[in-house]
Design a protein around this nucleic acid. Structure first.
Lengths: 136, 136
DNA sequence: ACGAATTACATAACTAGGTTATATGTTGGG
DNA sequence: CCCAACATATAACCTAGTTATGTAATTCGT
């Protein structure tokens, strides 16, 4: 198989699976989940988060405000820089994130279980390569 | 690997790759592209399209209007049912869709080519299983 | 064959989640 | 110590969706 055809087929398949996961799950915004996932590994600045998520800084400012309104994150002043804030995930945010991930996993698990063993094995063998694709 | 862990890892990886394809590509809406792709296989009613894309009927009505404004699709009266319209893709719509797919493919191809041969093989072997996941 | 219910689409009013341009306060280098 | 650069916030706007409702066409029961 050419890399051209592989790329075309893979793009289509991945897009379709992602659509499945988005539509089946979660009353909650994709970017919000991704931010919370980032925050699990430690506090971040607004600007960092905006760059991670490829949204504008004002977009991230309002998103963080929404996260605060929901009680999933909070702003903390940065002791070393009066301009900056450190956004941290709350316990409630961690709980919500875990539930969201579990729901997403469950959507896929039901379908993975309908596959033939060889297909499951093929997917398992491909996960590492898929992850490699996004390592910029 | 348990199907649980496979599902969790796969969901995360697929979501990340999809995000890559969305952000890197295309000034044009994901749902619009998906509708045009559907229309490639023949005319559809507004209601059908809404069901396919999991949006509301008014949402699809406005989306089809946008597609018409861009010249990518047009409404045709249904000769057998005065209430209905048949949405058809235009030549310009087909061209745009092909370009969008090519751009998306190119984003992925650059990254696929950086993989080791064994990783590419693993992805190629997994495409069929990925496609199976979204079959109804 | 006619009226009621249903169907297909459109319109209106609203919301979420972004955008760019700009303002405000903070910091660090020459 | 001042000034450019930085971190965030605010304002005004836009796109793509939602629900509720309106309008015209069709179907179905009697």
């Amino acid at each position: 198989m050419t890399t051209e055809k592989l790329s075309a087929d893979l793009a289509a398949a991945v897009t379709d699976v992602a659509r499945l996961l988005i539509r089946e799950g979660l009353h909650v915004n994709r970017t919000a989940l991704s931010v919370l996932a980032t925050l699990r590994s430690g506090p971040r600045r607004i600007t960092d988060l905006a760059a991670c998520e490829f949204v504008s800084q004002p977009g991230m400012t309002t998103l963080v405000s929404r996260l605060e309104d929901e009680g999933w994150a909070k702003r903390q002043p940065d002791p070393t820089d009066g301009r900056a804030v450190n956004v941290v995930i709350t316990k409630a945010g961690e709980r919500m994130l875990e539930q969201a991930i579990a729901a997403r996993t469950e959507v896929l698990r039901k379908r993975v279980e309908r596959l033939a063993p060889a297909e499951r094995r093929a997917l398992a063998d491909a996960v590492a390569a898929l992850e490699m694709l996004t390592r910029d």
